[in-house]
Write a protein that binds this DNA or RNA. Sequence first.
DNA 1: TATTGTTATACTCTATAACTATA
DNA 2: TATAGTTATAGAGTATAACAATA
Lengths: 145, 145
Amino acid sequence: MTNRLVETDLASDLEFLMARAGAVGSARANARLEGFGLRVRSYAVLTLASSDVDPSQRELADFLSLDASQIVALVDDLERRHLVTRTSDPRDRRSNVIKATEAGRVLADQATEQLRLAEKESLKALSAAERNQLREFLSRIAFDS
Amino acid sequence: MTNRLVETDLASDLEFLMARAGAVGSARANARLEGFGLRVRSYAVLTLASSDVDPSQRELADFLSLDASQIVALVDDLERRHLVTRTSDPRDRRSNVIKATEAGRVLADQATEQLRLAEKESLKALSAAERNQLREFLSRIAFDS
DNA sequence: TATTGTTATACTCTATAACTATA
DNA sequence: TATAGTTATAGAGTATAACAATA
């Protein structure tokens, strides 16, 4: 970037940099996910439903920092496309377990592969060691509070 | 965070962490800015207008990764509140120079002070040295492309 | 012809409140 | 009473296209 504004105080503000890096990364990820009919949020739900943790909608909401009502809409969409199933949890019938179908897991894997390429592109300015350190810093900021 | 989903692959994905850290930071910053009638985007425009670089709307759009039409709306609002002025650049009359008024500079300074407190809170998991390193990593990601 | 700023529009994301069923 | 999920709605953020003035 050749913009003169790179010299301002704002350009070295950590929150600003994080917001900017996040926004740019999400936009890039959304572009990569377009062919799968996914966006970053629906991808996140699908890939968590593909893991072996069997998340509830409440757990998805907490982990993704989204309101419960937003999870409803995301799961509705994925369920309509037969990529995930909702199953009432027998131990607590208020709670729905979200599980990916076989088709859902296949799509999630393909999408994950695409995102790996996108990530490589956005982070090419950092070495592998620097990426690990960045990951460690961000994990602490994101989950230690 | 005690959520079981912290153990999933997604939780260690750099793009996901960055998007999450950015979103959480922006939400916190918006809450802190509420009393000033600002949000992160209008704050960014105001504080850049308060610097001595005399940005044009085009430069603001490029630097903030916003569309030119979004800058129009942000400057409209700040101008209506007499926090910034639009002046046609005599060297290129297509271009508007955005400058903070005295009241705008005062407000920007107060808001910046509030955000410093918010940042301290969100980054308390990192030492000063780690913050500097994080800043350096993010600068490279944000501006080296 | 190309660029800056403007207007208009549509879509996505975010935030909130009220409701239901279960606990 | 409290929690998980649902419905509805409004406001903020994002993305595009078409246009006027100026270069």
